[in-house]
Write a protein that binds this DNA or RNA. Sequence first.
DNA 1: CTGTTAGCGCTTTCAC
DNA 2: GTGAAAGCGCTAACAG
Lengths: 336, 336
Amino acid sequence: MVTIYDIAKEANVSAMTVSRVINNKGRISEATRIKVRKVMEELGYVPNTVARSLVLQQTHMLSLLIADITNPFYTTLARGAEDAAKRLGYKLLFGNSDESMAKEKDYVDMILSTRVDGVLFAPTGDTSLEHLRLLEKRGIPFVLLDREVPGIKSDIVQGDSKEGARKLIDHLIDLGHTRIALINGSSDTSTARYRYLGYREALKLRDLPFDEALVQEVTYRGLEDEAVLSTLLTLPNPPTAIFAANNLLALGIIKILRGIGLSVPEDISLVCYDDLGFASEMNPFLTVAAQPAYQFGSMGMQLLVERIQGNAGTNPRTLIFPSDIRVRSSSAPPVR
Amino acid sequence: MVTIYDIAKEANVSAMTVSRVINNKGRISEATRIKVRKVMEELGYVPNTVARSLVLQQTHMLSLLIADITNPFYTTLARGAEDAAKRLGYKLLFGNSDESMAKEKDYVDMILSTRVDGVLFAPTGDTSLEHLRLLEKRGIPFVLLDREVPGIKSDIVQGDSKEGARKLIDHLIDLGHTRIALINGSSDTSTARYRYLGYREALKLRDLPFDEALVQEVTYRGLEDEAVLSTLLTLPNPPTAIFAANNLLALGIIKILRGIGLSVPEDISLVCYDDLGFASEMNPFLTVAAQPAYQFGSMGMQLLVERIQGNAGTNPRTLIFPSDIRVRSSSAPPVR
DNA sequence: CTGTTAGCGCTTTCAC
DNA sequence: GTGAAAGCGCTAACAG
């Protein structure tokens, strides 16, 4: 492996001069600059980022921790983050917590020892608090994505889940539904809490009663347990519509309903939070509250880099994106 | 930041002893081991991977370069790679070439200077050759994913595209189709060539004529230009079925057909290579040749790590996965 | 404009 | 069992 010393010797200059040429720092005569460049070329020199990181105490590497790499919301977000990172000159280390605190912890340990310059962090939930505290203790800047974590004050990019949920429910009420079930993510996540609040507010504003029996809490990873649904459907007064708190939940619900011979929207309406990426383009079916996932990633990255480079001021910044209600064919008037 | 010297001083030992405790190397008395561990704990020591990488000349970091992070084939592959990397104790640096040679080059430069230990490389096409040569020159091990590159002998994980295509076309012929169009990826990619060969072979084996006018070459990124389709559909003897060489192409075709008022499979049948991830689960619609994308990633990672650790022998290894034909509702008998 | 020195945090080698 | 010295490749600080 060729080092700056090899090229220094070959060009009859000191290593320092070579370093200066590489980094365009300080004054160098045009002659030596050219000579050094030529030798670098000839020897096929590639700077050793590791050595540079060690002395500079910064790696120019950032971490992106997402909760599920197969969920189109997160992959779109990841693409936004990746594009922005590249544009800003940073490399991206990738992590996938799978909505699991244990994996998230592993990943945080990795972040700590890898000495990344900052982290784009989509937390698993409120209990991510201790992981974030570790980052704080080490002085590693981070930006929260999608979910807020009580106790943490940091830059954050999130969606307006309460308002999005309210509008989605409002749409169902407009269609004539009065019995609307909510299948929610874990209440350990801020988004689940906001979506719940939006749900309740929508009912209240339209003078509809709230029925606790219509609310089920599961996890965002999806729905495997059909008991959750059958409990709902065997109620004396069953729901005519379901609000799934995210796309994966909606997917699970559709599969279970299909399994028991019910179809959407003929038998029951279904709406959910988050769009399905290109699945929606192929077959525009599900009525959703879509979030600008790409912007979550790219804006988050921008906030993070500003913070790292000291251009972010002292106060945490909050970016809240509205959700876009896309009415498609999975929601229809109730059937008796 | 606390270093091994800090903990050495605190524990009244040398830095070397601390290092040995950390790495469980050499003989250490149980007493000092415990003492050192305790101090490490108290001071919240985290090893500095950068320094370690510099002296060890290896980063324990691997690169994964994929062609499109929003394509479910690649995201599933990425998940497989990520899971395997984690299991094997490696970190994953992420890159997205977007099927663009320029971006791929940027990424290769990044790989070179970052000193990753190896690369999982899904090449853009045959012209990736020069990028791979750069890796070879630097002695960076890599495993090719999905596409082979003429001139490169390396470990590779790929699908049996020829056979998959043949079976897909065979299925259409079974349904009664005789005029089948192929909308293919760039012939700069090995998969496009194999799919073309499979297409031709299927026709030949069933004694159907080959018509060059039915074959169109575009790119795997998708289909925006509807001229490609209208050319096909205004033929004197238009196709009754289309074989799209990947999922994104199929998506584009569906959208364009919808735009001109044609539906699948009522007006025309459609099959494609690669499944759609969870879109297929939600709405099992497209007949596909599905590849085990997760295994592409996880097996590729395994081959790579074996190669890095010198457990791979000298000969390049080739893994070829069969494709799984999943017949769904997008293919039906032709209509007159 | 260019060079020398020291050091980033760690591990390898060789002593003791 | 443990430690001292040297060095991985680079750059900041200072000197000239």
